[in-house]
């Protein structure tokens, strides 16, 4: 007779076995969790117009020159001849310059300014004066500055006057060149 050993005696699981069981359980939970995203879903496109940004721009339009001398009335100077004009004390040279202003935006407002700083040579500043007005367009906002809103966009009639002081004595200020290309028209969106 052969003696047998009963291997069915209950044994406590080892730590290794416990670890394996925990990993298996976690994996099962993860798989189950992934499956929870597979519920119903739908989406609806919003029907609305595109949103477009506005615009702000500035361009030179037509210009007309006139010269009002110390003697005689104002005379229109054809643009082609302006380079031949020689101003003398007492003269007022006027440029009616249209500015094409683009202002697009529901809330947009802008400040139009003109900087004449570099037009007159510093050594001759006592004899010449450059002034700027924008007619009835916009609201004055300081020296040579005007506040415009969207309703003011379009052609803004700017007037530039160059005055040669009639009190200029001797031969002061002769043969002086004023550089109008040094004029800066600037249109800046208003911050407040």
């Amino acid at each position: 007779m052969i003696a047998t050993t009963d291997d069915t005696t209950a044994r406590r699981p080892s730590s290794r076995t416990k670890g394996i069981l925990a990993i298996a359980a976690g994996t099962a939970l993860l798989i189950g969790g992934t499956g929870t995203f597979a519920y119903w879903s739908t989406q609806q496109a919003l029907t609305a117009d595109d949103i477009v940004s506005g615009d702000l721009d500035l361009a030179l339009g037509d210009g007309e020159w006139s010269l009002d001398g110390a003697i005689g009335g104002a005379t229109v100077i054809p643009a082609a001849n302006i380079g031949a004009v020689r101003i003398v004390p007492g003269d007022v040279l006027t440029l009616q310059q249209d500015l094409d202003v683009t202002l697009v935006g529901d809330t947009i407002e802008a400040i139009l300014t003109i900087d004449t700083t570099d037009v007159i040579p510093a050594s001759q500043a006592a004899y010449f004066d450059v002034a700027f007005t924008s007619g009835a367009i916009g609201t004055p906002d300081g020296t040579n500055a005007f506040r415009l809103d969207e309703d003011d966009a379009g052609t803004v009639p700017a007037t530039l006057t160059i005055t040669f002081d009639a009190a200029t004595a001797a031969r002061d200020g002769v043969n002086t060149t004023l550089d109008l290309s040094a004029l800066d028209f600037t249109l800046t969106q208003a911050a407040s």
């Binding site: 721009d57 361009a59 643009a79 380079g83 020689r86 101003i87 003398v88 290309s181 004029l183 028209f185």
Partner: peptide, 18 residues
Amino acid sequence: LWSATLAGPAVPVRSGDL
């Protein structure tokens, strides 16, 4: 903010002489 700058007409204006 937006800003646009434009130079004046490229025309020299000269004074005369006596």
